Simulated assay, not measured.
Amino acid sequence: MHQLKLIQALKERRDILHITQEYLAELSGVGLRTIKEIESGKGNPTVETLSKLADILGMELPLEIRKLSE
């Protein structure tokens, strides 16, 4: 999944569940600043951070294997 689509999906899911950024930070152990940076498109989160957020939001983090250019 493209990074922007992933960020949008996380934001939409958080909104659907009526979870504030502050509460998501508390539940996930991810810093509020990091969450704000991710949602604004300015952050560069690790897979571990995205996995923590996705887990709290009841989502799965998709991984895709792309064909390498020759």
Rank of each mutant, 00 (worst) to 15 (best):
G29V: 02
I16A: 06
I38Y: 12
G31N: 04
T34P: 13
L63K: 14
Y23N: 01
K5T: 08
A9S: 07
S40I: 04
H18E: 06
L68R: 14
V30K: 02
E48Y: 07
G43H: 09
I16W: 05
E64W: 13
A9P: 00
G43E: 04
K11L: 05
R14L: 00
D55N: 13
Q3H: 14
L27Y: 07
Q3K: 15
T34C: 10
E39C: 03
G29C: 05
Q3M: 13
P45Q: 04
A54K: 11
P62L: 05
M1E: 08
I38D: 08
L4A: 11
R66I: 15
A54F: 10
G58F: 05
R13T: 03
I56H: 03
H18I: 02
S51E: 06
R13K: 14
L57N: 00
N44G: 03
R33K: 13
E64A: 15
A9F: 02
L27C: 06
E26D: 07
S40Q: 11
R13I: 01
L27A: 08
M1Y: 11
E37G: 07
S69Q: 14
I38L: 07
E22A: 09
G41N: 08
R13Y: 02
I19C: 00
L63A: 13
E70S: 12
L32W: 10
L10R: 09
T46N: 02
K5N: 11
L57F: 00
L10C: 05
L27D: 03
E37H: 11
I19M: 00
L63M: 13
L32I: 15
G58V: 02
E22N: 10
S40C: 09
A25Q: 02
E64Q: 14
I19A: 00
I65D: 15
S28K: 05
R33H: 09
T46M: 02
L68H: 12
L4P: 13
L53S: 03
M1C: 07
L32R: 15
L4R: 13
E12R: 11
G58R: 07
V30E: 04
I19G: 00
L68D: 12
E37C: 04
Q21H: 01
L53R: 03
L63Q: 14
L63W: 11
I56G: 01
K5I: 06
I65N: 14
T46G: 06
G41V: 12
E22V: 07
K36E: 00
L27P: 04
E12M: 10
G58C: 01
D15V: 08
Q8G: 08
E37P: 03
P62C: 01
Q8Y: 10
H2N: 14
I65W: 14
I16D: 06
L63V: 14
R13G: 01
L68N: 11
P45V: 04
T20H: 03
H18Y: 05
M59I: 04
K67Y: 07
R14E: 00
S28P: 10
G41R: 11
R33W: 07
K42Q: 13
G31T: 00
Q8D: 12
R33I: 05
T34F: 09
R33G: 09
L53W: 02
L4E: 12
E37R: 09
K5F: 08
E48T: 08
T49Q: 03
I56Q: 05
K67N: 06
L61A: 05
K36F: 01
S69M: 10
L4T: 15
D55W: 09
L17G: 08
L63P: 08
